[in-house]
């Protein structure tokens, strides 16, 4: 295992573009802290984002994991290109000839995906702790460490997304096209959702219950947007007479769906590699 990770680490660390993207990604996560300093004035009222309670424990776990997950696209580029470059440089062929088995090859890539997700989660934990401890109104230990399941969801969500990227990299073999495919797939899911929601199953919940099994939808379902949970937004909503009653929690079956997709993507990658002649 360690040997496989070392191999991948060596492939990545000398690649300048991968290095820049990875560093940018982690710097951007720390930039979540910058939101704290956003201030603007609406007429007489001075508005400071940090004062709206977004950095309160335990809400901050939800908020930060949602925001940080948006940045995953940076690592997605790294992962797609680390797969497809093996094809365009034909190094995958040489790797296999040198005695790496096809299973080991996929495993080394998937381990890298896990490490990326793991480090991201750890990083998010540290950034969130620092931010929370500096701005949160509640600092009791029990409150700080409640709702930690958002971190687990974040980890699974990232792993799922990266496993999808890994599969696309192998499937398409060209990084640009693989990323294009990712966008096309996202649009495809959107269209299918719209058709089911507004045409086929109008007025029922059926559309969402089917859509939750689609890969990208299942990943985005893991962490629901946190904005409408803010006091200010809730208050505004009550004023205009609508009740916001959203389920913000994390559910085991949602985690399970994404984990199933991870298994499927890894398995399909291996099958694809086994079936193809290089």
């Amino acid at each position: 295992m360690l040997r496989l990770l070392e191999i991948e680490y060596n492939k990545l660390r000398y690649s300048r573009s991968a290095r820049i993207l990875i560093i940018t990604y982690f710097i951007l996560i720390t930039f979540i802290a910058l939101i704290a300093s956003i201030e603007f004035n609406i007429g007489e009222i001075e508005f400071r984002v940090a004062d709206q309670g977004i950095f309160n424990f335990p809400y901050i776990w939800h908020f930060n994991s949602y925001i940080a997950a948006i940045l995953k696209l940076f690592l997605a580029i790294v992962i797609v290109s680390m797969m497809s470059n093996e094809y365009s440089n034909r190094t995958i062929k040489q790797n296999l000839i040198d005695g790496l088995s096809k299973k080991e090859f996929i495993l080394s890539k998937f381990l890298t995906v896990l490490v990326f997700s793991g480090i991201s989660t750890l990083f998010l934990f540290i950034v969130t702790m620092i931010l929370g401890l500096s701005f949160s109104d509640f600092n009791e230990l029990s409150i700080i460490f409640s709702d930690l399941e958002y971190l687990l969801a974040y980890f699974v969500k990232l792993t799922g997304f990266f496993a999808f990227c890994m599969f696309l990299g192998i499937l398409v073999k060209r990084s640009a096209f693989a990323l294009g495919f990712l966008v096309v797939w996202a649009i495809f899911e959107g269209i299918v959702h719209a058709i089911m929601e507004f045409k086929l199953f109008k007025g029922t919940d059926l559309a969402s219950s089917i859509m939750q099994f689609f890969p990208l939808e299942s990943m985005s379902n893991l962490i629901v947007e946190p904005f409408s949970r803010l006091n200010a937004v809730q208050a505004a909503a009550t004023q205009i007479g609508s009740e916001l009653n959203k389920d913000y929690g994390i559910h085991w079956y949602q985690l399970l769906i994404v984990i199933a997709w991870i298994a499927i993507f890894v398995y399909l990658s291996l099958m694809l590699l086994k079936k193809r002649d290089l």
């Binding site: 040997r3 191999i7 060596n10 492939k11 000398y14 690649s15 440089n89 790797n95 790496l100």
Partner: peptide, 19 residues
């Protein structure tokens, strides 16, 4: 077939790892 962005020594060391 080697990694174009790596030097001769880096490429060979990687092969050592694989083998």
């Amino acid at each position: 077939n080697f990694y174009p962005y790596m030097t001769a020594v880096q490429n060979l060391k990687l092969v050592c790892k694989i083998k």
